[in-house]
């Protein structure tokens, strides 16, 4: 195999995402100030060396809150696409590989789910499992993300069904499971990996939207989306809150988007 060459998109994306993820992971263990501790003496301070992103109306350090909230957002996004990708791949593999009536039934169900706006569907699921808890948001968003992965992966598996190397595998006696996992799955990665990056970004934005609307994460947990809705209330008094939180979301989405673009570019070069 020729070495796949690194490209600018991928490198920039990996550096940017790496830094942000490192910061957010660090935030799970250590932050400059406590992200929840109120300080009456330091309310609504603009950015300074002591408070990089300033403070909010309770005197909480926004940089610390961004670190901790970013971690929550990251966790939700990663678990969401994990659920979506794993279940979507299972459904896509089964329908794409076997075809027939199972395929028809599951794909029509898929179409029905896709027809709902995703936020509405998430709202519906949240109202069933109960609001507020981080893992409920993950369950709701995870389910919302299954259909798009199922559709992409179904195409990937179905397109290989009658290709000669699969026919050969069948002729030498390989079982269906072995063919799906060993012979087909690796060939879907070039589509799955970019789809994961797009899915991740959609999950970040969906979590932000849900928390902003008040159906996502609730105190004492905080996510970037929840903080953005908080920041809205003090947009004039403390614009740095909204700007730094929004910029964090934008940079994270931008970084992962660059990785996705870089991966696709890489595959195009290999061909």
């Amino acid at each position: 195999m020729k070495n796949k060459r690194m490209n600018g998109y991928l490198l920039a994306g990996l550096i940017l995402t790496g830094l942000l993820v490192a910061l957010m992971l660090l935030g799970k263990f250590w932050t400059p100030y406590s992200p929840t501790e109120m300080n009456g003496a330091a309310k609504l301070q603009p950015p300074s060396w002591a408070h990089l992103f300033g403070t909010d109306n309770f005197g909480r350090d926004i940089f610390s809150r961004v670190m901790r909230g970013g971690g929550t957002t990251l966790t939700i996004a990663v678990l969401t696409i994990a659920i979506g990708a794993v279940l979507g791949t299972l459904i896509g593999a089964a329908t794409g590989y076997f075809g027939g009536a199972v395929d028809d039934a599951l794909m029509r169900l898929n179409d029905a789910l896709t027809a709902f706006p995703s936020i509405l569907l998430a709202l519906l699921i949240i109202s069933l499992v109960g609001p507020g808890k981080t893992y409920n948001v993950v369950i709701a968003l995870g389910i919302v993300f299954i259909p798009s992965f199922a559709r992409v992966m179904r195409t990937q598996f179905a397109s290989q069904r009658n290709v000669n190397y699969i026919t050969s595998a069948r002729l030498m006696g390989a079982g269906s499971l072995r063919i799906m996992i060993l012979h087909m799955l690796p060939n879907t990665l070039r589509t799955l990996l970019p789809a994961l990056t797009i899915g991740f970004n959609n999950a970040v934005l969906a979590e932000a939207s849900m928390s902003f609307l008040g159906i996502g994460v609730t105190p004492p947990d905080a996510s970037l989306g929840y903080m953005l809705s908080e920041a809205q209330g003090m947009l004039v008094k403390a614009p740095w809150y909204a700007i730094s939180t929004g910029a964090m979301i934008a940079l994270l989405v931008f970084g992962v988007g660059l990785i996705g673009e870089g991966l696709q570019k890489l595959e195009r070069e290999v061909d």
Partner: peptide
């Protein structure tokens, strides 16, 4: 066993020659 006309689609593009040749024996 069969040998196909199109030598492009008869070998799994995800694997190297060793894996492709060893797979029937593993099965």
């Amino acid at each position: 066993q069969i040998i196909f006309q199109d030598p492009y689609s008869s070998l799994n593009p995800a694997y190297d020659v060793e894996w492709i040749l060893e797979e029937p024996l593993r099965v």
